[in-house]
């Protein structure tokens, strides 16, 4: 996991989510910082979706900053995967 670069995917447009990944300290796990226009209604669900993608791709020790503008689950998944790929993770396709 130390070979990961900092990477970003997604935009601040309506219905999108901007994901910025930075490698975390060893043992830090998956840390998610979330800002969202629907935090009260979907904050938990968004965190869960992000964490699931990271877990399925066997990624850990990573800091994920997410700025959400009302993205649906499929968009969140796509943006996290894109950021992971740009960070150097070889995506496991069967899970996409």
């Amino acid at each position: 996991m130390n070979e990961l670069k900092t990477a970003q995917a997604g935009t601040l447009e309506s219905n999108d989510i901007m994901i910025t990944l930075t490698p975390g300290a060893e043992g830090s796990g998956v840390v998610i910082e979330l800002e969202s226009i629907v935090l009260a209604q979907y904050g938990q669900a968004i965190r869960k979706t992000i964490a699931n993608v990271a877990n399925e791709q066997n990624v850990t020790d990573i800091y994920i900053k997410a700025v959400d503008r009302g993205a649906l689950d499929c968009t969140i998944q796509a943006r996290v995967l894109a950021a992971l790929s740009r960070a150097g993770v070889i995506l496991q396709k069967e899970l996409i």
Partner: peptide, 15 residues
């Protein structure tokens, strides 16, 4: 192109 490819892939499966 990479991000769009993933977004389109997800959209095909869920939308």
């Amino acid at each position: 192109k990479d991000a769009a490819r993933l977004l389109v892939a997800q959209s095909l499966k869920t939308v």
